[in-house]
Measured scan of single mutants.
Amino acid sequence: MAAAAAAGAGPEMVRGQVFDVGPRYTNLSYIGEGAYGMVCSAYDNVNKVRVAIKKISPFEHQTYCQRTLREIKILLRFRHENIIGINDIIRAPTIEQMKDVYIVQDLMETDLYKLLKTQHLSNDHICYFLYQILRGLKYIHSANVLHRDLKPSNLLLNTTCDLKICDFGLARVADPDHDHTGFLTEYVATRWYRAPEIMLNSKGYTKSIDIWSVGCILAEMLSNRPIFPGKHYLDQLNHILGILGSPSQEDLNCIINLKARNYLLSLPHKNKVPWNRLFPNADSKALDLLDKMLTFNPHKRIEVEQALAHPYLEQYYDPSDEPIAEAPFKFDMELDDLPKEKLKELIFEETARFQPGYRS
């Protein structure tokens, strides 16, 4: 834990890192770190609560700039109880001085990944967590956004079992017609939660990839272990087919990539493993919904509104309290091709509203 900075004593240090967030945020305490930044909790002297502050230093890398800009653009436009918001952003007053960006968010005690390492969940908890994931996802999908990296560590939890989806750095506007060349190379989302079509096709992607990830998360809540822990690309596919069985001819016809289709045709026939054999203690309604989410063919996979209306979630289902976005989200430009200098300018502009004396 960093010592509390005395008023006016300059930035606090946390594990050798400068955290320049005073005077409003003090009493910093280390939480963890990701690929390009550290997260601390801090005391907000204005709202009198502890908050989470993520320090991001992305400006050396085009990919990190892209992810940072995506996350900020999306989260500043989203407003939903099951999606983490941005409360404040701290950065230098000029673009030349801006080396880091500090993002202030609600402090959540833990995440689903940490929880599943230590606790076996009751059916009631599984049901409530799944409902909140789908409630947040309904809003995301209504904005025409794909999260693309749903996994237990991106689901934040607090002691009252509130759940918030975080990390929109890989999110995209849904565009089933656009052929994202190089899709697989830039697709760094965790393999275990990846839909089979991501490994088999490169053309376009749809909201059904997020539903697949939610199915993987439900299976993990039922058993405290990942359902498809593939060691590499082909191993991942083999794990999936080992449980779902061989795809039907109709399902194979959806695979545009001939090499991928021929690979699947070359494999020995596998039978589907019954879900109640894998999860003998699970609620039968939970397994019915799991089956509809972990469907090989993305066109037959359940959609988020149908999933919310499934009998497993009937005690929570309330369409009048499951809000959607006001308007579909649009990125003005494809960020993939922009140089990091341009992305830095866009991050600077996007964060201006939090600067003292800002006038829109």
Score class of each variant (00 low, 15 high):
244 L>P: 02
59 F>G: 13
228 F>V: 05
80 H>P: 09
201 N>P: 04
107 L>Q: 01
110 T>N: 03
160 T>Y: 11
82 N>E: 07
163 L>N: 09
274 P>K: 11
216 C>E: 01
276 N>P: 11
114 K>Y: 03
173 V>M: 02
298 P>E: 15
8 G>E: 04
152 P>H: 00
86 I>C: 15
24 R>I: 13
165 I>L: 04
330 K>V: 11
171 A>T: 01
48 K>C: 08
226 P>R: 02
21 V>C: 07
310 H>P: 04
344 K>G: 05
319 P>V: 07
300 K>H: 10
148 R>H: 06
348 F>L: 00
211 I>V: 05
219 A>F: 02
359 R>D: 07
160 T>A: 06
111 D>A: 00
218 L>S: 01
277 R>K: 01
163 L>I: 14
296 F>M: 10
187 Y>Q: 04
185 T>K: 02
319 P>W: 10
352 A>Y: 15
149 D>W: 04
96 E>H: 15
302 I>P: 09
262 N>T: 12
181 T>P: 04
157 L>E: 02
21 V>Y: 04
297 N>C: 07
203 K>H: 07
331 F>Y: 00
252 L>T: 10
226 P>A: 06
266 S>Q: 14
336 D>I: 14
239 H>N: 00
78 F>G: 08
85 G>N: 15
38 M>Q: 09
256 I>A: 09
63 T>R: 05
172 R>Y: 06
98 M>I: 00
313 L>T: 08
204 G>Q: 07
6 A>Q: 06
319 P>E: 08
30 Y>N: 01
188 V>D: 01
136 G>W: 00
299 H>C: 11
326 E>W: 11
354 F>I: 01
51 V>D: 00
121 L>A: 10
225 R>W: 14
144 N>I: 00
64 Y>V: 09
356 P>Y: 15
237 L>D: 06
211 I>Q: 05
51 V>C: 09
305 E>K: 02
70 R>P: 08
129 F>V: 12
183 F>K: 08
89 I>K: 10
59 F>M: 14
250 E>H: 14
187 Y>N: 00
184 L>T: 03
96 E>S: 13
315 Q>C: 15
125 H>P: 05
341 E>F: 14
110 T>K: 05
16 G>R: 01
212 W>R: 00
222 L>I: 13
249 Q>Y: 13
146 L>K: 08
205 Y>D: 02
193 Y>I: 02
30 Y>K: 08
16 G>C: 11
127 C>M: 06
23 P>K: 15
223 S>K: 05
94 T>M: 10
245 G>H: 03
78 F>H: 06
246 S>M: 13
8 G>Q: 05
72 I>W: 06
12 E>W: 13
309 A>G: 08
166 C>Q: 03
172 R>E: 02
319 P>K: 11
174 A>E: 02
33 E>T: 14
241 L>R: 12
106 D>Y: 01
188 V>K: 02
144 N>A: 10
75 L>A: 13
261 R>C: 06
330 K>R: 04
229 P>T: 00
55 K>E: 02
311 P>W: 14
165 I>D: 03
247 P>T: 01
28 L>V: 12
136 G>F: 07
161 C>K: 05
40 C>P: 15
84 I>R: 06
251 D>P: 06
77 R>L: 00
51 V>K: 12
359 R>G: 00
276 N>F: 13
119 Q>Y: 09
38 M>Y: 11
343 L>P: 07
288 D>N: 01
126 I>E: 01
357 G>E: 08
163 L>E: 08
66 Q>Y: 09
165 I>W: 07
322 E>N: 15
18 V>S: 14
360 S>K: 04
313 L>N: 09
91 R>W: 14
352 A>P: 12
103 I>Q: 06
281 N>R: 10
310 H>S: 08
327 A>D: 02
